[in-house]
Design a protein around this nucleic acid. Structure first.
Lengths: 339, 339
DNA sequence: CTGTTAGCGCGTTCAG
DNA sequence: CTGAACGCGCTAACAG
């Protein structure tokens, strides 16, 4: 662990000269430069960017706060973030909140202390608090995937309401009339939006909403299992299920298989969030697929633009298109007898 | 962005006093403490941990270098790492190398500059260089998942050779005699070890090795497809395939499906690395499953112990057990006519 | 072309 | 119980 001073002594110059060699700033005679460079390699000197950051108030580090890196949707987002960040010389710290606002607040506090240049935030709850905290600290934020109240902040997300609407419309067009929605936590915007899209599609079709067909739980496999059990207990039984994310869909599928129900023959199933082709042997689910990688990219680009001061004034809300991918789980059109 | 000085002025004390209330060090009268604490909240003061790190030479930040966070195996490892790290007050920077030693070297250099307290490294290639670089810089390293030559370093991994051996033994016990192995890059230890395990099983069964049944390519879906195409062109055709990781297995499966071959009826398939239950609707592959989450945990615990100076002297090599999970893709015992 | 001075924000001496 | 001074490693000004 040699410092710039060690290098300076060894090369018989001042630390400033070494600094100039490293940063290619100012004029240096070829001879001194050579001497300094030699000293650097001999000592295996690596500049301490902490000291540099302290001066410049720039750490070249971003943070990505999400609920669970284990969810393939977020994994892909993270990859998009990291790719853009590293292209631009930034590192990224990642944190899992597990949807807990408490965890989130703690992480945010630490990141502020560490002088993270910017934060990409998937808010645990639909609350203005975390964003405001960051803004008070002067840390630029881009909100990812979810909406937050207030709106004085950059957001990159998809149109969950529309995606849900499309998915439910598809089911309606296949003849389904009793469709249950298995959503995430009430307080999360995507869950609320997806239920809203479901409702719009139903209303448009002139169908009354049945409260026994609307469920909120966690965005997890276990949540999906619980909601499916309840939904299928409703009489008359729903003929189709709309899972508000990939994990819920897996839980639903598992539960039905265990209950001896076939998908889509007995109950159709559609979901939000595709599973990457690379980790699926047999794509089966009909889904509203969000461009996860692009979301990560765009959000990071926007954040970096903000840091560089090159982003347009005011706050941006970038809404990326959702792709409806129809596969087998939604089944064929229902025979009229079944409806 | 207020500093400790702002707080001091506002509370009419010196910066030292503020420092003391923040760190609960030394004696402070209850009254002064209250005044300082009030100033802190009024200003929304957050200590700058950069300055602190500069003094203490401790950033409370680790780095996780892996090939691709998008691979569910590594995603799970990452989650294990982050959980242990954050429990202990550390953050984690993650970097993807895409198996490129060049990317890896660049990342390592940056991380050394950033004074990362420790590095968890999945080496891109079986080379001592990256580890030695880090050690020269005085940055503790734990190597994850793969072996590196030299050995003067802590390692947390699984026994790839044994796992491969078990998998191939299973195929042999089912009557297979022509088994192809589709491995990762030659220079990666896990690929080499898995081929070694394959060879041992074959040798033990008194079977000669056929070079047309041994392939090395990338640990990707595309690599899997390419190798499968080649392997299946061998005459007589192999009756079983051993894919050295999950992505290769997917590629193999895809290729066979496209070629109109059924798994396991026409060709059996076994693989290394399970896909997490949470992202698989229908577990199908017979696999040698590595405890990915535990690997991340153990490696991080070991690294933190090293940082605390509480790890035993010398270098540890922790080898975690592999679980053989037999599912449908390995098929039933071959009828003797088929062999 | 090169060196000196000063300061980024903090915490640990060592005095009061 | 509290404060002043110094230095962690680095670099922008300003000499020379």
């Amino acid at each position: 662990m040699s410092t710039i001073r060690d290098v300076a002594e060894r090369a018989h110059v001042s630390t400033m000269t070494v600094s100039r060699v490293i940063n290619r700033s100012g004029y240096i005679s070829a001879e001194t430069r050579a001497r300094v460079e030699q000293a650097i390699v001999e000592l295996g000197y690596v500049p301490n960017s902490l000291a540099r950051s302290l001066r410049f108030k720039q750490t070249k580090t971003l943070a990505l706060i999400l609920t669970d890196i284990t969810n393939p949707f977020f994994t892909t987002v993270a990859r998009g973030v990291e790719d853009v960040a590293s292209e631009n010389g930034f590192n990224v710290i990642f944190c899992n909140t597990d949807e807990s606002p408490v965890e989130e607040a703690e992480q945010l506090n630490i990141l502020a202390q560490k002088q993270t240049d910017g934060v990409l935030l998937v808010p645990a709850r639909s609350s203005a608090e975390p964003v405001e905290f960051l803004q008070r600290q002067g840390v630029p934020v881009v909100v990812l995937d979810r909406r937050v109240p207030g709106g004085g902040v950059d957001v990159v997300r998809c149109d969950s309401e529309q995606g849900a609407y499309d998915l439910v419309r598809l089911l309606l067009s296949l003849g389904h009339r009793r469709i249950a929605v298995l959503a995430g936590p009430q307080g999360v915007s995507t869950a609320a939006d997806r239920v809203a899209g479901y409702r719009r599609a139903l209303a448009e079709a002139g169908l009354a909403e049945d409260p026994r067909l609307v469920y909120f739980d966690e965005y997890t496999q276990a949540g999906g299992q619980r909601m499916t059990e309840q939904a299928l207990a409703a009489q008359p039984q729903p003929t189709a299920l709309f899972a508000a994310n990939n994990f819920i869909a897996i839980g639903a599928y598992r539960f039905m298989r265990q209950a001896g129900l076939r998908v889509p023959e007995d109950v159709a199933l559609v979901a939000f969030d595709d599973l990457p082709a690379a980790i699926v042997m047999d794509p089966f689910l009909t889904v509203a697929a969000q461009p996860a990688y692009a979301m990560g990219q765009r959000a990071t680009e926007l954040l970096l633009d903000r840091l560089a001061g090159s982003a347009p004034a005011g706050h941006q809300e970038i809404v990326l298109p959702i792709e409806l991918i129809i596969r087998r789980s939604s089944g064929d059109a229902l025979s009229s007898a079944a409806s």
